[in-house]
């Protein structure tokens, strides 16, 4: 069985691209490589990561210019064919701007940039991204953003909640959704959402920043491991079917 292959997109202005590649390739030993923002070809990949940063300078709105880039056109096709897409921070902003995920990310309530550790509650473990977490588990991850306040119209929110598309919520250490535990004012304390099909996840916290104990925690590592396991299982099922 072929090992799942991960692509890490490099936009001009991405600055967590090298970090994501480091975790996937050097820490976890997965097959991973960069893809340039001008490519329209994602064939051969099983998962695509849109990393954090300030793609194209984020001049119009965060993620707005990237959403029209060749590689995001390719990501759209890739997602429609069932490939796994993970957008972290700026990558999440790109996915909402591209319409691959509902809602939008607005200026933080504070309204300054915030870089700190936060607690998250894992709301769903039946996604390709969260299979290795326990239901309702409280995990710690760093955030680093100025525009992370998740927002969506009421009917979209209701739909999101009904479809259980909220995957991560900001909580305190005890798992409660308190005002203080919400670092940016996100509606419904939303830190990460998945699309209705379940194969596109966006989140503001940085799992790649907490995949090694020496950096203060390892709770993010299981997100990548979940993706890897899910892809392997899918490949095994496919192999079994064709065999």
């Amino acid at each position: 069985m072929r090992d799942p292959r991960f692509a890490v997109v490099v936009f001009p202005g991405s600055n967590c691209d090298r970090d994501c590649l480091h975790v996937l390739r050097d820490v976890l030993g997965y097959a991973a490589q960069f893809v340039w923002h001008e490519t329209e070809d994602l064939s051969g990949f099983d998962a695509v990561l849109l990393p954090g940063g300030f793609s194209y300078g984020d001049y119009l709105r965060p993620g707005a210019v990237a959403a029209t880039s060749p590689v995001v056109r390719a990501v759209r096709r890739f997602a429609s064919l069932g490939g796994l897409v993970l957008g972290v921070c700026n990558g999440f902003q790109v996915l909402t701007e591209a319409g691959l995920l509902p809602g939008a990310l607005l200026r933080n309530r504070t309204p300054t940039f915030r870089c700190e550790w936060v607690h998250l509650r894992v709301e769903r473990t039946d996604t390709p991204f969260t299979g290795l977490y326990a239901p309702g588990e409280v995990v710690r991850m760093p955030i680093a953003h100025g525009d992370g306040r998740y927002h969506a119209p009421r009917e979209v929110l209701e739909e999101l909640e009904r479809q259980r598309q909220v995957v991560f919520r900001y909580v305190d250490a005890q798992g409660r959704t308190t005002l203080d535990a919400n670092p940016n004012g996100s509606v419904h304390h939303i830190a990460g959402v998945v699309n209705a099909a379940g194969n596109v996840l966006g989140l503001m916290p940085h799992p790649e920043r907490c995949s090694e104990e020496v950096l203060g925690g390892q709770d993010g590592r299981r997100l990548f491991e979940s993706m890897h396991r899910w892809l392997r299982e899918r490949a095994a099922v496919a192999a079994g079917r064709s065999g």
Partner: peptide
């Protein structure tokens, strides 16, 4: 210092607020 990204590049073992910052050499 929470307004500064002090973690990007995955080297920060000890960040701002301590006597000295510590960066790992991968």
């Amino acid at each position: 210092y929470t307004q500064y990204d002090h973690m990007v590049q995955l080297r920060t073992v000890v960040g701002p607020g301590a006597d000295a910052a510590v960066l790992r050499l991968v």
